[in-house]
C-alpha cells in the first residue's frame, strides 16, 4: 500500500515534469511496479510462505517486519524455504524500545540480519529435524536444533508450536524470537 502510494505520486510528478520542463521529450516515464513475485495475481495456487504469514492473525509484527526489511520479494520466490515464524506474542517478549528501533530505516540492516536468521534455504519438516543438528541460516549464522519431550527447540530459546506447509516451503510457528550471535 505504502509503496503504491509513493510510486503513484512519483509517477504523477514525473509526468508533470515532462509536460512542463522537457517538451522535447515526448516519452512519458512508466514506473515499474516495485517488488517482484509478491505482486503476481494468483488466488488459486497454494500460498507461499509470505502469504501464509500474511493470512495468520498471530503474525502481524512479523509481516510488518518482513516488509520493512524488504524481504517480501525474496520470500515470494521459488524457495524452498523453511521459515521460523515468531508469533506476535513472541515479539511481545522483546523489549519494546529495541523492537521499535529495529523498525526504523537506520536499523534496517540489523532487522534484516535478525529476520534472515529465521530463514534457511531448504524445506525441512519438523519431524526431519534432529537433536543436535545445525542449520545454516540465510544471514550466514547457524542455529542449533534440540529435541526435548518430542518438542523441537531452536537455540534452546524458541519452540516450534505449529507447522504450516506452503507452496515454496514450510512455516514453523515459534514462540520466541531467535537472536543471531553477536559479531566479533
Amino acid at each position: 500500500m505504502k509503496k503504491y502510494g509513493i510510486l503513484a505520486i512519483a509517477c504523477m510528478l514525473t509526468i508533470a515534469c515532462n509536460n512542463t520542463e522537457t517538451p522535447a521529450d515526448t516519452s512519458s516515464t512508466t514506473t515499474a511496479v516495485a517488488g517482484g513475485q509478491e505482486n503476481v495475481q494468483d488466488n488459486d495456487s497454494q500460498k507461499d510462505v509470505v502469504k501464509v504469514a500474511v493470512g495468520s492473525k498471530d503474525h502481524t509484527t512479523l509481516v510488518a517486519a518482513l516488509k520493512q526489511a524488504d524481504l517480501v520479494t525474496s520470500l515470494s520466490n521459488a524457495g524452498p524455504f523453511t521459515v521460523f515464524a515468531p508469533t506476535d506474542a513472541a515479539f511481545g517478549k522483546v523489549d519494546k524500545a529495541t523492537l521499535d528501533a529495529l523498525m526504523t530505516d537506520e536499523k534496517k540492516a540489523d532487522l534484516q540480519n535478525i529476520l534472515q536468521y529465521h530463514v534457511t534455504v531448504s524445506a525441512i519438516k519438523a519431524e526431519s529435524l534432529q537433536d543436535g543438528q545445525t542449520l545454516g541460516m540465510v544471514n550466514g549464522d547457524n542455529i542449533t536444533v534440540s529435541i526435548k519431550d518430542g518438542k523441537v527447540w531452536l537455540n534452546n530459546s524458541a519452540m516450534i508450536v505449529a507447522s504450516v506447509p506452503a507452496a515454496n516451503g514450510i512455516v514453523h510457528v515459534i514462540d520466541g524470537v531467535l537472536l543471531p550471535p553477536a559479531k566479533q
Binding site: 520542463e21 514506473t31 515499474a32
Partner: peptide
C-alpha cells in the same frame, strides 16, 4: 521523490 523527480535520470526500476 519530489526533489529528485524532475531530474532527467530515470529511477533505476523504471522502464522508460
Amino acid at each position: 521523490f519530489m526533489q529528485t523527480g524532475c531530474k532527467p535520470k530515470n529511477a533505476n526500476n523504471a522502464v522508460t
